[in-house]
Amino acid sequence: MLNLLGIDNPLELAVIIVGSFILAPVFGMLYRGIDRKLVARMQGRIGPPIIQPFRDIRKLLMKENIIPDGAIQWLFTAAPFIALIASALLLLYIPLFGRGALLGGTGDAILVLYLLIIPSLAFVLGGFASSSPYATVGAQREMVLMMSYEFPLAVVIVTLASRIGLVTNANPFMLATIAANPIWNLVGPLGIVGALILVFTLIVVTIGEAAKVPFDIAEAETEIAGGLLVEYSGRNLSLFYLADIIKAFAMVSLVVALFFPYNLSPLVGIGIPVLAGIVDGLFFLIKVFVVMFLSITLIRTAMARFKISQVSYIYIIAMTLIALVGSILIGIDLLVF
């Protein structure tokens, strides 16, 4: 086995691999179930059981896999795989369960940005390949949305990396570096405000990334089948379903990795590696849950029920501007203190 990331403890390596490939999707699905349940409760319903996403996927695997006559066959079939593989790759680059990322290295923070695009792109490709006008319209809109939210996301990461780059000799565009130097430790009060604004931006971006079926904002979670997936069925649909879940989990993990990389074990002083790993892993899950609840579940329901309509209607301008304000604050903070 390759000695990735300089991890020489085979146990730890095994833990990370298990964490990336098994635990992350499992918890991703669990969180999707929790999200659906919570939304239902907030809408006055009982809602599906938390394990519903597992059942959905198992059922989809039992179903017939139809490829429509008019579709571009190879692309139609390949797109779900691309989406799933790209989402899974994301997990390898994002630190999970309080550990480092399996892969990673110079510039992985930028790489993640690109990897985030690929699943969306695969959705778009699948939509175009179905050559249904419905899916085509959906694909076009998805592309527009995708381009819009990648931009503020880039601003957030670049700001973080530039600030952190000033205090360390390590490459700042590494998630490991960012994790080692949490932004909150580096800046003064003004910078904290700036960082909070960046967190807010990232959370709004997460809504866009996770509510992947962009035209179906209210039902993106309960109904994975938006316009893009109209022609998909059976296994292919389940792959998209899974990719969607994993990507949402990865995205939220990214938020955690960028802004809340703290581990619990050093704070409470647990020295035993295994115990520390378990404690950190659980703490990570809690952090992910909190971010997911705030960004996906709560805002989604609240936006429909109450009204949060203060943000401008163009994602790209408003959110980018807000992100820029955040980075300027961090910049001023640097000058002042």
Partner: peptide, 22 residues
């Protein structure tokens, strides 16, 4: 579908295309 009866608790849900339907 609505709160009074809420079939989603049984995992039943309405989908928008026959391709996804059981």
């Amino acid at each position: 579908l609505t709160p009074r009866y809420d079939v989603e608790r049984f995992g039943i849900r309405l989908v928008g295309t026959p391709r996804h339907a059981d």
